[in-house]
């Protein structure tokens, strides 16, 4: 499965590039990631979020990078869900913003893992990646992912509608956090 998405961020290319190049930042806006740990100059270890498939972890390496332009990576070894990605950064015509173009490729296996991943992407697989990029934009432009009473849990607010009502959260809801 190949997914593409794009957004424009009102920050200069070097800043957006640097944020992405520090792969440990990816889980702050990509809903399917729990953690990315840098293990070497070009290597990293990725841990998926529960809805994407519990206990899915894989190693990845950067296979191409052109500072200020492009980063490409792919999973290595026998990953449960082999995947690869490329992100390009292009100065926008306004002279201040950066266009981010991303392509993700997943090799979805059969069995329970494949089912979980397919369920995660749902009927509109592009929606997830679009929302990931929306959160990236929020973080780069405003510092964090925006929360509302109806969708209070940032990137874990996956259910679009119906949501919890647009009224303040009770103490127990706040302590419990996102239910997933």
């Amino acid at each position: 499965m190949e997914l593409t998405a794009t957004t424009t961020i009102r920050k200069p290319v070097p800043e957006v590039y640097a944020f992405w190049r520090d792969l440990e930042n990816l889980p702050t806006f990509m809903a399917h990631l729990e953690e990315v740990r840098t293990t070497g100059d070009r290597t990293s270890h990725w841990v998926a979020n529960a809805p994407f498939g519990k206990d899915i972890e894989w190693d990845a390496e950067i296979v191409g990078e052109t500072p200020g332009e492009k980063i490409a990576w792919r999973s290595t070894g026998d990953a449960d869900v082999p995947n690869a990605g490329t992100v390009r950064f292009v100065p926008a015509p306004d002279g201040v913003s950066t266009e981010v173009h991303i392509v993700l490729v997943y090799d979805i296996p059969g069995g329970t893992i494949g089912k979980a991943v397919a369920k995660y992407f749902g009927e509109e697989p592009h929606q997830q990646l679009d929302d990931d990029l929306r959160r990236l934009k929020q973080i780069m432009e405003t510092g964090e992912v925006v929360r509302s009473d109806g969708a209070p849990w940032g990137k874990q607010s996956r259910k679009e509608f119906p949501q919890r009502p647009a009224q303040p959260l009770s103490e127990s809801e706040l302590t419990k956090g996102a239910d997933r």
Binding site: D131, Q138, S148, A151, F161
Partner: peptide, 10 residues
């Protein structure tokens, strides 16, 4: 505003 609607997808 492009950033303040958590339900931008809808």
């Amino acid at each position: 505003c492009e950033n303040t609607n958590p339900n931008a997808g809808i």
